[in-house]
Nucleic acid binder design. Structure first.
Lengths: 215, 215
DNA sequence: GCACCAAACCTTACGTCGTAATGTATCGTG
DNA sequence: CACGATACATTACGACGTAAGGTTTGGTGC
């Protein structure tokens, strides 16, 4: 018997929790139902299919992003929302690869695009310039997070330990430039990949300002 | 009865062909075997598991990337290899999300990293600067390709048609800035998203040159 | 020509998945 | 108290990856 009354929102929240904790591949209708004290097929009274559940989950992720304000400093607004995107995608590591295959954008997704275009437009950019700036900022942010997610470690010391162990140890010593890089960067005290985010984003925003004559 | 002698390489090539043509989700052991005129379990005499098959496939993708030369102009070498990454990932759209989950890098993956570090090092960058430059260029390239793969259309006219149809039509008209953007960019004759690649990459490379005092 | 063996290939089976079809129980409202 | 809707359960189907074990094939030494 069900522990509580089931609602579409409860299903969504539990699905998010499972994906966050155990990865998207651990999100199965049976497992989700078990977590809710219910049988798998009962979920279909609250969710049309697993596919639209994923759509809704992705849109919920978009809703967590801090939107840029159109009346603020474009540079600071973009910086803030980019940092927010990164934080959100780190909280929901399953979301980024999933966004790729989703076809129908939810309301939060649309609101996100609207706010970004509004911010760049308010900064005085032409439509073509908005397209350029939007593309390059998002490319950097998505690509950076993708690289973070690719990393098989979560911290600097963990990275250092991995580089030393096999099979990485042999691979690194066999490649002189990787060895040089490992020694001076990865094995340097206090190194973490995430420190590359702020300077990289600043570099991109500087480039936009310079390209389009923005303050 | 098998049409030809089976080899690990034949399995790999066929697997790549299936993934390229029908997407990674269409790559099943049974389907792969059928394509090779063989039963599913026979594949396990040439490939340890589907998981290591995916590892090998990803490394084969890395092998297709044009490596930067350490003795050339760093800017041109990076530009060339970045364009190559984009082309390769567009040829194998299944590869990018897959690289994320693979844990053990193959030889081509290692050679790729080695060549990139060598190129940046030869340009005179310090280890920390190599880390910065490498991170920001790869972030841009991966992120740009990710955005391209996200796009639910393949060409400019196709994009324009989609923007006009439902459910996008209603969504766009409900958001004034998206409408403005759609009218002046997406619906403009000759627009394609891929045109954003070269200027975006140039902006990033300019930023690197300026940040680190490179020619 | 023949016995032998390893490699290549097949058959069967198990537990997983998403979900269609159908059945049962519970509850708000008359 | 009856009745119709809503919530939940059961059973079943065809897919998936692959473990375990059986069969065919081709090359080698006598």
């Amino acid at each position: 018997m069900p522990a509580k009354k089931l609602t579409p929102d409860a299903v969504l929240v539990t699905a998010l929790a499972i994906a966050d904790r155990h990865g998207i591949e651990a999100l199965t209708m049976r497992g989700l139902a078990r977590e809710l004290g219910v049988e798998a097929m009962s979920l279909y009274h609250h969710v049309a299919s697993k596919d639209v559940l994923l759509d809704v989950m992705v849109d919920r992720v978009y809703a967590e992003i801090a939107l840029p304000a159109p009346d603020g400093d474009w540079r600071e607004e973009l910086r803030r929302r980019s940092a927010s995107v990164r934080e959100v995608l780190r909280r929901h590591p399953w979301a980024l690869p999933l966004m790729e295959s989703r076809r129908s954008p939810g309301p939060a997704n649309l609101a996100y695009h609207e706010a970004n275009i509004a911010c760049l437009r308010a900064a005085g950019l032409t439509p073509a310039q908005v397209a350029h700036a939007y593309a390059v900022v998002d490319a950097f942010v998505y690509g950076f997070v993708l690289q973070e997610l690719m990393l098989p470690f979560d911290s600097g010391p963990e990275a250092a330990a991995m580089i030393r162990d096999e099979p990485w140890g042999a691979a690194v010593t066999a490649h002189p430039n990787m060895a040089w890089f490992a020694e001076h960067v990865v094995l340097a005290p206090g190194y973490t990949f995430e420190r590359e985010f702020a300077p990289g984003l600043a570099l991109v925003l500087d480039g936009i300002a310079e390209s389009f004559g923005l303050p």
